[in-house]
């Protein structure tokens, strides 16, 4: 047993410096819905992406920049990967590590797209990338079925926060 644990600990220690990127949390739909329905005056920027989606990868830096810029405000960035759960270790985790993503990353562990797309947003067709910018206390919900620039994201956040 000890024989087994030691290399594991060493491995963990070795991996520690690289572990500053976000861990990927695997969630089911209700956990995501709960977050999307929080009645707080926090603006949530929720981006749906996948490692196989080129325009998604290209726009990820904008979400990272947005997170850094609004870190002191009530703005939360969440990146929801729609990669297949079977690709978590092979694709998603290495990608998040390599990019050093600082935003929170979840992977949605649901297979029935026809059910979960409407469960996230009825106006979403299912095309990626897709971004929701919402503030439930202010009853604001904006949807973008297209890649966004940092300027477009900021505009959406400001609209969501406006008094």
């Amino acid at each position: 047993m000890i024989k087994l644990v030691r290399p594991l600990v060493l491995l963990l220690l070795a991996a520690a410096p690289a572990a500053r990127a976000q861990q990927v949390r695997v969630v089911k739909l209700p956990a995501l819905q709960q977050l999307l329905q929080r009645p707080t005056d926090t603006t949530y920027v929720v981006n749906f992406w996948a490692t196989w989606c080129k325009p998604c990868i290209e726009e990820l830096p904008h979400f990272e920049q947005l997170r850094a810029k609004y870190a002191r405000q009530k703005v939360q960035v969440l990146l929801v990967s729609l990669d297949f759960p079977s690709k978590l270790d092979a694709k998603v985790r290495p990608f998040v590590q390599k990019q050093g993503l600082k935003s929170r990353v979840w992977l949605l562990n649901e297979a029935d797209q026809n059910a979960y797309i409407d469960g996230i947003d009825r106006q979403w067709s299912g095309a990626l990338p897709f971004t929701l910018v919402l503030n439930n206390a202010r009853q604001r919900r904006q949807r973008f079925e297209q890649p966004l620039t940092l300027a477009e994201l900021e505009k959406a956040v400001l609209a969501a926060q406006a008094p």
Binding site: L82, Q113, G126, E145
Partner: peptide
């Protein structure tokens, strides 16, 4: 009518 994940039309 059903929905599915896919790539945005370019």
């Amino acid at each position: 009518s059903t929905k599915a994940i896919g790539c945005t039309i370019k």
